[in-house]
Design a protein around this nucleic acid. Sequence first.
DNA 1: ACAAAAGTGTTAGCGGTACACCCATGT
DNA 2: ACATGGGTGTACCGCTAACACTTTTGT
Lengths: 233, 233
Amino acid sequence: MQLAVSTVILALRPTPDGSGTTLWLPLVRRIREPFLGAWALPGEPLEEHMSLVEAARARLRHTIGLDPNYLEQLYAFGGVDRSRDGSSPDAPCPERVVSIVYWALVRADEDARMVAGENVAWFPAEQLPALAFDHAAIVDYALARLRAKLEYTPIAHAFLPDEFTLTEVREVYEAVLGRGLDPANFRRQILASGAVEPTGEKVTGTSHRPPSLYRYRPDSVATSPTPPPRSAA
Amino acid sequence: MQLAVSTVILALRPTPDGSGTTLWLPLVRRIREPFLGAWALPGEPLEEHMSLVEAARARLRHTIGLDPNYLEQLYAFGGVDRSRDGSSPDAPCPERVVSIVYWALVRADEDARMVAGENVAWFPAEQLPALAFDHAAIVDYALARLRAKLEYTPIAHAFLPDEFTLTEVREVYEAVLGRGLDPANFRRQILASGAVEPTGEKVTGTSHRPPSLYRYRPDSVATSPTPPPRSAA
DNA sequence: ACAAAAGTGTTAGCGGTACACCCATGT
DNA sequence: ACATGGGTGTACCGCTAACACTTTTGT
């Protein structure tokens, strides 16, 4: 029985047709049976000297070449038959794998300076190829968790650079939730929440009224958000 | 490296002084180093032929002799030094353990017909003895999760028998949250939520106005509540 | 001047809280 | 009759949604 740590890495990028913004995620092509040649989540066996988060972070560095600021445990998947390839029932039964999956969010500015690893390709979350193992279900679960957390935590922070306009924040919400939001009300709500404060500066050269810049208040979440007892993770 | 499944089992019982109701949980006394003789969460190594939930359920049957209706994965703990006994630094470094922890809720009526296993004792959650490993932190995390879920899911269901009065539901909330709630408003809120429906019967012999009985609507959660993709857990 | 996005004001409705009050039973 | 908890009514407050309106820039 093997213990592995896998990662769902999410970033916001323009849709393929350029008409908006959606979530994208990197997948790696499998170079071993089962599911040889299929796309899968980046993962690796847990090594003796690494904690679970450390293993997840290492995988991130290896896959996209950077340390994202948001990383949280998603779930542990341990069904007995997870690693069997349903599409080729004659294949020998592979060794059982328990996967502890983490999910990460990549800031727009980090995304730009990213270095993709070997065998890695990015896909829009709504148009994924067929995935190995139960990875499609895992991605769905990660997306559901992200949408849920967006509504009750300042997690949009994790997609944004240090300074940003309120419209950029709203666009994060709209892209993740998949629906438009009233700019006027959104503005008031996020300001009233106290999560954000004005820097005093404005953006220039916008061909319309220049928006103010804001930053997240320091006490807002930075990395792991609601992990359990800090020491044990 | 070892992979274990542990459980935090919660039930509502009268406080030790009989003045109210609180959460209690069963612990087992350790019969091996490290932490020999200390109290710990019920757990066992994961066996090859069992999924994670199955292992948790088996542990529950072994510890309290029944299958609770609510069981959910809590978190996977995998710090490198989790199994070291801080209080006896001279002890040999024990093998590393990754624990996948589940939490379970026991209904009042099940609690009554429960059979405690060997070496098992129940403690009020607010007055636990010193626990082995990082188990104290794990219990805290489970309690936090329970309180959070109480506010946005019909999880109180899991503590109640098939039929109950609205006052009993309120007492569950009050015990878990640790504060009193307005009976009038609580009543209206839970009815408005649609989670509950009247059976038409009343309780008799109460020395005051007889309360109506209710049941949870069938589409309310029964067992696993918000697990990820049903098939993969 | 005009377009376009930033930002403000105003209103109506909904849900939660506080608390006064009435109802049905046992003693 | 009265105590006790079950159950209803009501008034207020804050938050949200909807949308009209004003402001500030570039072209």
